[in-house]
Nucleic acid binder design. Structure first.
Length: 225
DNA sequence: ACCCAGGTGGCCC
DNA sequence: GGGCCACATGGG
């Protein structure tokens, strides 16, 4: 590997500063947000979260006991609202039943088995599971999202297309530091939102300015996910 | 009127 | 393992 990941991280951090992820008041709210933000803008997730908060449904017990139709109505702004409502009620019910609604008990488990447990829940895939593990559980797991794949493909640094291989690439080539994982993923999303859409603005991209990205990479702007 | 967003699961080959 | 498809609202 010619370019060290930590150098890219430092370049982004210097340009954008800390991103303060995950934006949430509680650990359970992080879990709810992780599900709601699937293929959805954060702006719309915020509306759904506000609706849930207004109705006091941001606790495990209240959400588990709420009528599915009510949850659907409240999370509608986040899209896929039937699927997401079902998933939210299901995970709340699961946490209530198996952990007495205590996330502290959940996150006592080791990372590997906890990850498998989350992946067995309907509507929780790898990215959502890893977001929960990293940001709510404080586990040392790197989150791979569509922007991260796209950015590293353009940089010519994508080691594979398989999710877990990409994740291991990051985990093997960064300091074993949860804070860096949290910040780096947030910074990559920030970069992706601003510079890796269909019309890249390469001249103002921090990676380009720091000579970590060649202009020609950005010119290949076909959507990749 | 398009296109896409901090994905996931099912089905096909 | 890859290639489609449904799932759905809201902003550019």
């Amino acid at each position: 590997m010619s370019t060290s990941l930590i150098i890219i991280y430092k370049s982004l951090y210097k340009s954008f500063g800390p991103q303060h992820w995950w934006p949430a008041r509680t650990k359970f709210e992080i879990i709810v947000g992780a599900i709601l933000t699937q293929q959805t803008t954060w702006r719309n997730v915020e509306k759904a979260i506000r609706n849930l908060r207004k109705n006091r449904l941001l606790t495990i017990e209240n959400l588990a006991n709420a009528p599915l139709r009510k949850i659907e109505e409240l999370v509608r702004p986040a899209g896929y609202y039937r699927e997401k409502a079902k998933c939210l009620k299901n995970i709340a019910t699961y946490l209530l039943k198996h952990y007495q609604g205590k996330l502290k008990e959940l996150f006592k488990k080791d990372t590997k088995s906890l990850r498998e447990e989350l992946l067995n829940l309907r509507g929780i895939g790898k990215e959502t599971a890893d977001s929960i593990l990293l940001y709510a559980g404080g586990k040392r797991i790197f989150v791979i999202d569509a922007y991260t794949k796209r950015i590293f493909l353009r940089l010519g640094l994508l080691p594979a297309s398989d999710y877990d291989k990409i994740r291991m690439f990051f985990e093997d080539n960064l300091p074993r530091d949860v804070k860096i994982y949290e910040e780096f993923h947030a910074l990559l999303v920030k970069l992706g939102k601003e510079f890796c859409k269909r019309k890249p603005l390469c001249s103002s991209c921090p990676l380009f300015k720091d000579e970590l990205c060649r202009y020609s990479h950005c010119e290949r702007s076909e959507a990749i996910s």
